[in-house]
Nucleic acid binder design. Sequence first.
DNA 1: TACTTTTGTATCGCGAACGATATAAATAAC
DNA 2: GTTATTTATATCGTTCGCGATACAAAAGTA
Lengths: 151, 151
Amino acid sequence: MKEEFRLDNQLCFRLYTASRLLTQAYNPLLSAHGLTYPQYLVLLVLWENDAQPVNDIAKRLCLETNTVTPLVQRMEKQGIVTRAKGTNDARQIIVSLTDKGQQLQTALTDVPFAVGGAIACKSLTPETVPALFQTLDDVIAQLKKSLKRDT
Amino acid sequence: MKEEFRLDNQLCFRLYTASRLLTQAYNPLLSAHGLTYPQYLVLLVLWENDAQPVNDIAKRLCLETNTVTPLVQRMEKQGIVTRAKGTNDARQIIVSLTDKGQQLQTALTDVPFAVGGAIACKSLTPETVPALFQTLDDVIAQLKKSLKRDT
DNA sequence: TACTTTTGTATCGCGAACGATATAAATAAC
DNA sequence: GTTATTTATATCGTTCGCGATACAAAAGTA
């Protein structure tokens, strides 16, 4: 059994597991408002900048448009966002928050704190978190480059 | 716009993105052999310990059995593993590697190196990686505790 | 022994993710 | 100005991931 194949030596498995479990921690908080985690991400994007085309949302979340399109369509059905043809570019679909979508920000105020509580551990301190963020950002940037190259 | 809602302050979004992109880096290497990343994880588990019940595989990967069952069924169809009723406990399904499943380890020898190359960046050094692993393991352990509590 | 509870898999349904493909609008090339 | 190419979404098919549920085998209890 080669060392490189040991599950405990895999960065990807750790990221995969941490991501899934942390998403699960969000779940009860979000589903109480009829939301999924990816839908919450779309809300975070729109709360920062309302009225964006599908493509911009996808780029911001590093997702493909064929993931974002049905995601946003479901959110439209729930009355959280509206989808309207772009005026400058008729190909674009501009996604905007409805009042309900705006108000969700207030309803979800305590979500970041609740999740922060669920994840709090001695490895996550005001001193270590910035380094962790930096590392993950670096890895993400590097992967974007690598994945772009062999397209 | 509250600071806690900024996408750039979210640990979960970073983990989610890093996990997805790193999985994408595995994809061309694995799909060349008809494998997906979760199937590769099952292989890693079985290469470490062959002939395990579905439940043990699921626990090792922090997945539910209703995710692993169909995953393993697909691998059985591909002739990578076999599924047999347990002898001690007739409820268990013991998943074992076929010859083809064993041989895949040789065929995939260079996967860890190729992925290592795709992800190599200045934030990942022999000095920093252990700390990163430790932090992620800590976060995962903490989340397991938190998620178990409110069941 | 009979009855209840727990445990191990499996099935179902839905929402992601994403590769492949389609379509219309915008842009570039000629 | 017509044709070719690129760009922005959308649709389709497959595989996860997981909550809810079903069911049989095992373990515990009366």
